[in-house]
Amino acid sequence: MSAHPSRAASDAPVLSVRDLRIEFPLGVVVDGSSFDIARGQTMGLVGESGSGKSMTSLAIMGLLPKEATTTGSARFHGNELLHRSDASMRRTRGDQIAMIFQDPLSSLNPYYTVGFQIAEAYRAHKGGTKAAAMRKAAEAMDRVRIPDAAGRVGHYPHQFSGGMRQRVMIAMALVCEPDLIIADEPTTALDVTVQAQILDLLAEVQEMTQAAMLFITHDLAVVSQISDHVTVMRFGRTVEQGTAEQIFSSPRKDYTRALLAATPRLDDVVDLPEPILTKGGE
């Protein structure tokens, strides 16, 4: 019954990245990244622009442009992901490893219904009839709580709000029951109220499927809410790694402390100049 025999050995990490180094002709963008993610755990990869966090995820998915040179290793259930053929990577990607990106509108094809696109993702890996795949699509949409999922499989991406589109992307990521979910800034483009719902949904989905998750974001507050472990990156290097609690309660590195200090807080009270409310008054 298990398509994933290695699930039995639950102590072994689902994803194990070692000394990952990514170099472009113009320079090194990731220099020695190492981390493990176990089943049901989330690794938050956090950093500012240019830190190499997205490059790390693209390398794991085999989506780096051809001019990039990678060394080191990224093992998924013990199998090397780097330097695989495109065809072999395509079999894994979308099936055992799913991806969720920042902008659902550009990740979805505007010409096809969302049900068709989810069903295609399923059929590409699992086969079966179109009708069966469409039922799977409706099920997946229902699981991410898109209201009236069975009725909405026939709708096009533009007929959904931003938050609902991101739910469609999550449904597509889940339909093949992946062991690893890579989410790259999945809530960055969303309004805060929608972001809160999507973060709840991702946590819930992970609880249910026990997938490992690599969650990439620039937002420390988001990371603190969703991660078990955190890796802080800067200029391609790992600055600090630890449990979420350790990183946020006792950061060891100056850069981590500076990032935390720069993160605005809702209950921070800052001194501002006094407005001039009276005539000629100070």
Binding site: A196, L220, A221, Q225, S249, L260, T263, R265, D268
Partner: peptide, 17 residues
Amino acid sequence: LLASVPSIDPRWDAGRR
């Protein structure tokens, strides 16, 4: 809106001014 703003878990928050 205010309830939706993600915050660093207050038990852990070492970076607070």
